[in-house]
Amino acid sequence: MSSSSSRTPLIDMIKGMACATIVWHHLVFYGPMSDIAQPLAPTLMAWLSTYGRMAVQVFLVLGGYLAAASLAPQGLARFDHAGSAIAKRFVRLVVPYAVALMLSVLVSALVRPVMDHPSVPDQPSLSQLVANALLLQDIVGKDALSAGVWYVAIDFQLFALVVLVLAGIRALPGTWARRHAAGLTRASMVVGAAASLWVFNRMGELDMWALYFLGAYGLGMLAYWAVRAPDPRGWVVAIVLLGGVALALDFRGRIALAVFTALCLVAALRSTRVQSWRGVEPLVRLGQMSYSVFLVHFSVCLLVNAVVSQVWPDSPVLNALGMVLAFGLSLAAGRVLYLRVERHVPSWTTALRWQLGLVGAGMLVVMTSHWAA
């Protein structure tokens, strides 16, 4: 990101904490180690199972913040071609995503014979593999191959939607439209966020579409423009009004968290002292590789669950230690994926190769299962 306020150690720290929360939420939610360890910390387990998923709202707000920084820091589209910007985003997302899903398919096949548990994904079909590879699984009604991958599809939809809106405003004819393009962009994001927060986010059947999540994403974009504005009060009022009306219409804890996150970003990142703070190094590093950790952690946790549940099926202490081990190994695996895959600039050839690898690995699992039967 070109703006000094678009990417700071604080942003990475927040991402790191949200990522850790999501990993622990899945460790508790899916089991079976958490089922055995639950008596050791029932209150913490219940909180992580119920509320840990809300950390996704933090990612949505941060995603909007960083999208505004890269796509329209001044309210004007800074990319040349909408199709090129969207294609680059797809490739950046899908390469580590396909690698992680391939691992999930293989690990699921490995543990399926020894662990009969709802957390183990079923044997994939060809249509399911293709849908997951193209980020279409929820839209076409296919099961995800790994926990949390719905977020990758939503992130791509949101980014593409913002790009198309910006490109559409830039293409408007007339001198007036060109003169007021920045204002039109910002107004469109406020209107879009309002429509999402007040209407679409209250319709659960839309949760596979960007419009359902545009409210939190839009709040992040508004937060970025507030940080960059000479006087942020107008933006702060807009964030408070958007969130306040949404909560008055239908109180949702996840929306309250999104509003709180956006306001905290404005307050913190307008501070020169905070911007110059180097942060807590382990959390900064975790934030930098949070996408890779998010992608790969389910496979790691599934494998550790299978081993621990077979060897120590009744020990709360050892199952709790297994959860800690799974968390640590998830960070290690995420770092490998980050360093070996995510950090490298991908190409369409790379993306296609890994997508075909994902489909091929899934079909190999299916054929091997048929042969074994």
Rank of each mutant, 00 (worst) to 15 (best):
R270W: 12
W312Q: 01
F298A: 03
L269M: 13
Q310R: 12
L331Y: 03
L286M: 15
H297M: 05
G328Y: 03
S292K: 05
Q288W: 02
A306I: 08
V307F: 06
A306V: 04
V274D: 10
A268Y: 10
G279S: 10
Q310E: 08
G328E: 06
Y291N: 04
V280Q: 02
F298E: 00
L329G: 06
C301Q: 14
V274C: 12
L302W: 09
Q310H: 10
V308T: 07
F294K: 01
L269A: 07
F294N: 00
V311I: 13
S299Q: 10
V308N: 01
L302C: 01
L329R: 08
L302E: 01
L302G: 04
V296N: 01
H297N: 14
A326V: 02
V274Y: 11
V296A: 15
V274W: 12
L318Q: 09
V280R: 09
R270E: 11
A332G: 07
C301R: 02
V307H: 05
G328V: 07
Q288P: 08
E281M: 13
L325P: 00
L302M: 14
P313Y: 00
V324A: 14
H297F: 03
A326S: 15
Y291G: 02
V284R: 15
R285H: 10
L269N: 13
S315L: 05
Y291D: 05
D314H: 12
S290Q: 11
A320Q: 11
S271T: 11
P316M: 04
G279P: 10
L325C: 12
S276H: 14
A267Y: 14
V274F: 11
L331W: 09
L295M: 04
S292Y: 09
L325T: 11
V308H: 08
Q275M: 14
P313D: 03
L321M: 13
S276W: 09
R273Y: 13
W277H: 11
W277N: 13
R278M: 02
S290W: 08
M289S: 12
V304I: 12
W312H: 07
E281G: 07
A267L: 15
V311N: 02
S330D: 00
P282W: 11
V307N: 01
L331N: 03
L295I: 09
V311Y: 00
S315N: 14
V296T: 14
T272M: 11
V308M: 04
V324N: 07
M289N: 02
V274G: 02
L286I: 15
V280S: 04
W277S: 12
R270Y: 12
L321H: 00
A332R: 06
G287W: 08
L269G: 10
Q310C: 03
L321E: 04
S309A: 15
R270L: 11
Q275A: 14
G287C: 10
P313I: 01
W277G: 09
L295Y: 01
E281L: 14
R270M: 11
F294H: 06
Q310T: 03
L269Y: 12
A326K: 09
Q275I: 08
R285P: 02
T272N: 15
Q310A: 10
V317D: 09
A332F: 08
V308C: 06
